[in-house]
């Protein structure tokens, strides 16, 4: 089998699996959990490109998630625009902000970059909370209209699940294209050594900015999907802890791995649902699991589980 055929098979498998789950899941609750996993995967996917491939950390990515959500909320609910018109505007708004913030911020490196993005995230959060005439303030923004295509209402559980996972699949394809392209190789060069990359003629600043803007746009897309699904947004959803959760999804899933982003997002979305039974112990168990996964599988779940599988197979073959 050629590599491209192999990939084709994998995508076909993924597509049919999504379709299968969509048909098999009869309980709207399961569909909703899957929808949130899809939205979170989208967030992790964009951030993974920035962190895993370009090696730049962002501790303020929830801001772009929020910008996407608030832009579409304001345009559709306050100004009555069609969501399909507000979609490109929400994404463009986040991309523009990312461009303006990224230009000075991406000159920083390491923890200083982390701090710079964190500061930006905090400022964005305060703007969401304090600009109450426009954003609804701390109590939140109500009445965001559902999505529809002509007579087809997308807001029902199954349709929205297909929409989110369809968008996710397209985003995965786009990311794969980027990673396998000349740009992707240049990104990995930056990840390994920024100076070496610059020496061989990679325009590092330009490239970092591009990836930053792209990942912000993906986060805004996720924000758009979240806003029209829940139909209510409040600043708390886009706070510092969300930014940290996004980074955690990427690292737990496995950096520089597209499936890792999905695995990480799934784990962090499902874990609280499973841990309900522990009630007050939930936080302790959650923290322990997070530490445990990272201690046992410092490369993330994808790599870690594959290693386990390989080891088991070796033992079996022997």
């Amino acid at each position: 089998m050629t590599p491209s055929l192999k990939k084709g098979v994998a995508y076909a498998l993924a597509c049919s699996a999504i379709a299968g789950i969509g048909l098999a899941a009869t309980n709207p609750y399961h569909l909703q959990v899957m929808t949130f996993i899809g939205i979170n995967s989208l967030l992790a996917l964009g951030l993974n490109l920035l962190m895993g491939y370009a090696g730049q950390i962002s501790l303020g990515h929830a801001a772009f998630y929020g910008i996407g959500a608030y832009t579409t909320a304001i345009l559709t609910a306050t100004y009555g625009l069609s969501p399909w018109l507000s979609l490109p505007m929400a994404v463009a708004a986040a991309a523009l902000v990312a461009f303006l913030v990224g230009m000075p911020t991406l000159k920083l490196s390491g923890y200083y970059l982390g701090m710079g993005t964190l500061g930006f995230g905090m400022i964005a959060f305060i703007v969401f909370r304090e600009w109450d005439g426009v954003t609804g303030g701390a109590s939140g923004f109500v009445g965001i209209p559902p999505l529809a295509v002509g007579p087809l209402n997308l807001s029902s559980g199954r349709n929205y699940f297909y929409l989110v996972w369809g968008v996710l699949l397209v985003a995965i394809l786009v990311c794969r294209r980027i990673i396998d392209s000349r740009t992707g190789r240049a990104l990995r060069a930056i990840h390994d050594s920024e100076n070496a990359a610059r020496a061989v003629g990679v325009g590092t600043m330009h490239l970092k900015l591009q990836v930053f803007v792209f990942s912000a746009a993906v986060a805004a897309l996720a924000g758009f999907l979240y806003a029209h699904y829940v139909s209510f947004i409040s600043p708390g959803t886009f706070d510092f802890l969300m930014s940290v959760r996004m980074v955690t999804m990427v690292v737990i899933g496995g950096m520089a791995s597209i499936w890792g982003a999905i695995l990480g997002a799934s784990l962090l979305t499902l874990l609280p649902e499973w841990l309900h039974a522990f009630s007050d112990l939930e936080m302790v168990v959650y923290g322990l699991i997070m530490m445990g996964v990272m201690i046992v599988m410092p490369q993330g779940l994808t790599r870690g589980i594959l290693d386990l599988y390989e080891r088991a197979r070796e033992r079996h073959e022997r």
Binding site: W259, L270, I305
Partner: peptide, 17 residues
């Protein structure tokens, strides 16, 4: 490994109580 990854992702997702 490619297939395994896909299956793993879906397996994790499909576990509901």
């Amino acid at each position: 490994s490619h297939g395994v990854r896909t299956v793993l992702v879906l397996a994790v997702i499909m576990i509901f109580t």
